[in-house]
Design a protein around this nucleic acid. Structure first.
Lengths: 112, 112
DNA sequence: ATCGTAGTTTGACATTCGTCGTAGTACGAC
DNA sequence: GTCGTACTACGACGAATGTCAAACTACGAT
């Protein structure tokens, strides 16, 4: 059998450092931006990343273990969504400001 | 002679990932919290950190190179201050939410 | 039962990171 | 000048991180 249920940190277990660390990476920031835009559970396969599949899996896990996203299985797909409510309650304004900044500067960009 | 003038990124050079990475570390977060509380140029020696002096220097540099703090020499002391204005302009709400969260959970803490 | 799709796990690797001690530089005071 | 204070620079070290390919598991459909 499988561990089809994924471990998520409870709200009380979410640490600021872990969240910031999770967000401080271009690939993961791209995932967060995408999830913020599409609002609902998105399968990993729908988000095109510039890295291999296993690296993608790794980044999703970092985000989940930091408490940034929620992942639930739905058949063979794994639906990802932002934990907006929890993060907003813990760190009001944090996610909003990061997402807003990410939208202004599309992904990763070179300074002028 | 000396390089008594320190390089700071211009506002346009500040990258979100670098700022988040700089903030995603307990010692650096402690420095930021301290600077936010005391408002003005604070010498490194005034902030007691749980690491050696050379490690402290390293963390100050990471913060400066990410654009989070400004450092200016004043005699032999190096005065540190938050780049609140620049960060607020670039990422409105980000610094505020991080500082607020840091104040709620003193430094680094274990989940319940 | 077979196949394909979706995602994971396991090693491996190079890079970055946080840490330290030691030696060094810059400046003010004496 | 000499001394002390404040901070830096240089290795060095182990730990963590991002990356990949290859082999694997889980599920749905045929």
């Amino acid at each position: 059998m499988s561990t089809r249920i994924l471990d998520h940190p409870s709200v009380g277990e979410i640490r600021l450092e872990a969240v910031l660390h999770a967000l401080a990476e271009p690939v993961r920031l791209e995932i967060v931006r995408f999830l913020a835009d599409s609002g609902r559970g998105v399968p990993c396969s729908e988000i095109e990343l510039a890295v291999s599949k296993s690296t993608g899996t790794h980044h999703y896990r970092v985000l989940r273990e930091a408490g940034v996203i929620r992942q639930v299985y739905h058949g063979t797909a794994k639906l990802n969504s932002l934990r907006r409510d929890d993060l907003d309650a813990l760190f009001p304004g944090l996610l909003d400001s990061v997402i807003a900044a990410t939208r202004r500067r599309p992904a990763s960009e070179a300074p002028s």
